[in-house]
Each structure stands twice: as structure tokens, then as C-alpha cells.
Design a protein around this nucleic acid. Structure first.
Length: 337
DNA sequence: AATCCGGGGCG
DNA sequence: CGCCCAGGATT
């Protein structure tokens, strides 16, 4: 990893935020782009929200990006640009929880705080054959205490890196390399034949189905754009005019015109195109939908206080992948539609 | 304590 | 298709 052996708390913090629930190979290029654009925390603090979100586009969990900016500005202004140097103060930073605080404290300042991430849960649950659910409050507490007990207090940074590397490459979720494992003789799960049953999780997550029908309203060379600011998926990202449904709707020119009239009072509209179905799987919901291009000769009163942007302005904005899938088909050319 | 937040990779 | 990923915030 490019940040291995790194001692700059800014770079460690940035990489750890990027790597929350994110594979190293997925986050690497994002990390490099951020460091190239913002080599120091004060430069990140001065950045415009829109540019930072554009850099984060596609990485997911967009509140990480919001908190990243907030914390950069907090450190730049309130702490004179000096990154906090102890676990308790690091933990107070927005977007920084127990894992990230321990990672920064141990990697940057060699302080004795044990990281407990998905790798550590897995390694400890197997080596000690603990079947307490890792997603329960009791489990989090039990594994944190155990992780602290087995931490190497002389080299906490190296130890933390090592146990996570070990979990990622040897003690893997599926098909772990028990045959070559140096802990074979002391691993309780291996000795008891329980490796494939650990760690234990108790919660099963439910998936919802949602149908997103996006109207690309064009008027006078501009398109209606909306920023998602509600507590929902894709917070702070941009989108077109959204009609959401909890069921599959079948659109044709007549049903679109009827919908436009009944919902928005639009009488004159040219239905240019109705896209095929698009879909995206999220961790906790399935999003399906279509995109409908509409040219409006006049802006209806119901759409007056929305933002209308040119293609050039739209290209600067960060969109969810669901929309980018559609845009990548070449749906928005220079001549619009 | 329960629920929510993305997107990618892998078997 | 289900699970997991160098987790955290909110309610």
C-alpha cells in the first residue's frame, strides 16, 4: 500500500476514511487523487465542496466525504492545522470511530491502541474460538477487550498492520489458508474444526425494492438538476427530477403525458426518449428505473424554484452510479437532445 | 439496540 | 446471488 510506513497523520487519516468498508484496491486510486489535489490538510480545508464530492464520486458512503471536509476545516481553523495527537482527541473527530482512531493513534504516533476491524474480528474469533456475534453490543465489547489484551504494546503500529494483513491474506473469510497458517497449532477454531463457522453474525439484512423514474426536463438548453439533501441514499449527490414508486411502472408516451399533467400541471411537453430499464444493487436495497427525456417549451409554475443547469455545469457535479450508468451511454451530448 | 449508508469483488 | 470489505452516525 502506498501509505505503508506513512507517519503523516493527515495521510493516514485520509486513507483510513477512504478504506472504511472499502477494499484496498478499490480505494487506492481515490487516495492518490486526493493526495495529488490536496497534499496537506489546510489545502483540503480550503477546497470547494463540489470539487471534493466529485473526487469522491463512485466511492459510496457519501457521508464519509461530508465528514472528511468538516474535519479538515475543523482542524485547520480550530486546531491551527495541527492534527490531534492522542486517541481520545482523535476519537472526537467527525467520521472517526474506534477503529479509525486506533489506526491513526498507532500508525502515526505509535500509541498502544488496538484496531478492531473486520479482519481482527475474524482472526480473534477463530484463534480463540469465540462464537459471540460480532455485530452485537456484547461482541463488540468482548472483542475490543481481547484485542487490547493481545496487542503488542512495544510496536502497536506494526502489530495492528500485521493482524489486519494476516486477516486479509491468510485468515480470509472464505477458503482461509489454514494449511500454511503459522497459528495452526494454537488456533482453537482450527483444532476444533470450527473455522468455517466463525465469526458469527446475528443480524440478517432486509433488502427493499425501489423504482426511480428520472425525468430529464430540458428548457432553453438547460436541464433541471436537484441535490439530494434528505436523509436517504446518495446524500449530497445530484440527480434529475425524480418520481419514485414502490412498484414497477410501465411508461409510454401517453402515460408520461398523463403523469406530467396530473402531477406537475404540464400541458405542453415533447417526450423525446424513454430509456430502457437500469438497475443497481446497493447493500440494503435494489434500485431499478428508467430515464425519460422531456423538452418543455415553458417552465411550469410547479418547477419554478428548481435549478436549471447547462451541460457544462452538470459535468462538474457528482452523481450516483445509477445515473452515471445512464450518462455513460452518451445520453447527454453537447447538443443535449 | 436497531437501522441506515455504496459500490465492487468473489465464489 | 449472497457475503464481505482496514466502520460510523443516527435514532
Amino acid at each position: 500500500m502506498p501509505w505503508k510506513g506513512e507517519k503523516d497523520p493527515y495521510k493516514i487519516w485520509l486513507s483510513e476514511i477512504i478504506l472504511q468498508q472499502t477494499r484496498v484496491e478499490q480505494g487506492r486510486s481515490y487516495y492518490e487523487n486526493f493526495i495529488q489535489n490536496y497534499p496537506t490538510i489546510s489545502q483540503l480545508a480550503k477546497a470547494k465542496d463540489e470539487k471534493v464530492f466529485k473526487l469522491w464520486e463512485g466511492l459510496g458512503y457519501y457521508n464519509r466525504c461530508k465528514n472528511l471536509l468538516f474535519t479538515a476545516r475543523y482542524i485547520a481553523k480550530e486546531l491551527n492545522g495541527v492534527f490531534p495527537g492522542n486517541y481520545e482527541d482523535i476519537l472526537t473527530l467527525k467520521g472517526v470511530g474506534p477503529y479509525t482512531a486506533a489506526a491513526i493513534a498507532s500508525f502515526a504516533f505509535n500509541l498502544p491502541h488496538a484496531v478492531v476491524d473486520g479482519n481482527v474480528f475474524r482472526v480473534l474469533s477463530r484463534v480463540f474460538a469465540i462464537d459471540t456475534a460480532i455485530d452485537s453490543t456484547a461482541g463488540k465489547s468482548e472483542f475490543s477487550i481481547l484485542a487490547d489484551e493481545v496487542l503488542d504494546r512495544k510496536e502497536p503500529g506494526i502489530y495492528n498492520q500485521a493482524i489486519m494483513d494476516f486477516g486479509a491474506t491468510v485468515c480470509k473469510p472464505f477458503a482461509p489458508l489454514c494449511n500454511h497458517c503459522p497459528l495452526q497449532k494454537i488456533c482453537k477454531a482450527y483444532l476444533e474444526g470450527k473455522v468455517n463457522y466463525l465469526p458469527v453474525k446475528e443480524k440478517v439484512l432486509q433488502k427493499k425494492n425501489r423504482w426511480f423514474y428520472y425525468f430529464l426536463f430540458q428548457h432553453d438548453g438547460k436541464i433541471l438538476i436537484h441535490q439530494r439533501l434528505m436523509k436517504d441514499i446518495w446524500e449530497n449527490l445530484f440527480e434529475f427530477y425524480l418520481a419514485e414508486s414502490n412498484e414497477h411502472l410501465h411508461w409510454n408516451e401517453a402515460s408520461v403525458k398523463e403523469w406530467l399533467y396530473e402531477q406537475l400541471g404540464i400541458e405542453k411537453a415533447e417526450i423525446v426518449h424513454i430509456s430502457p430499464q437500469f438497475a443497481q444493487q446497493l447493500t440494503h436495497q435494489n434500485v431499478k428505473g428508467q430515464f425519460i427525456k422531456v423538452i418543455l417549451p415553458a417552465i411550469p409554475t410547479t418547477l419554478e424554484h428548481h435549478e436549471w443547469l447547462s451541460l457544462q455545469q452538470i459535468r462538474q457535479l457528482a452523481f450516483p452510479k445509477f445515473i452515471n450508468q445512464y450518462l455513460e451511454t452518451g445520453a447527454l451530448q453537447a447538443s443535449l437532445f
